[in-house]
């Protein structure tokens, strides 16, 4: 998880510096939102204790056995 967080922060910081140089505020906001989503997904994945995956839940929900 630490590797993932370092990766996200590293890439994020570099990209935001580049985007700020171009002075496009809206792009920065969307970029930060998406990076936040990626971070949250990553943290949830690395901390989850449940064995079932999202696809598993969906398949069970519509009663498909595989």
């Amino acid at each position: 998880m630490i590797f993932y967080l370092v990766l996200v922060l590293g890439i994020g910081a570099y990209d935001i510096i580049c985007l700020k140089k171009k002075q496009i505020k809206k792009d920065v906001v969307i970029y930060i939102s998406l990076m936040a989503l990626a971070t949250v997904l990553g943290i949830v994945y690395f901390l989850q204790t449940d064995e079932k995956s999202l696809a598993g839940y969906i398949l069970n929900l519509i009663n498909i056995e595989w």
């Binding site: 990766l7 809206k26 997904l41």
Partner: peptide, 14 residues
């Protein structure tokens, strides 16, 4: 958005 290529990194992480 004006610049698309910066979105590559969050999208690929997701």
């Amino acid at each position: 958005l004006k610049e698309g290529k910066f979105l590559a990194s969050p999208i690929l992480l997701i």
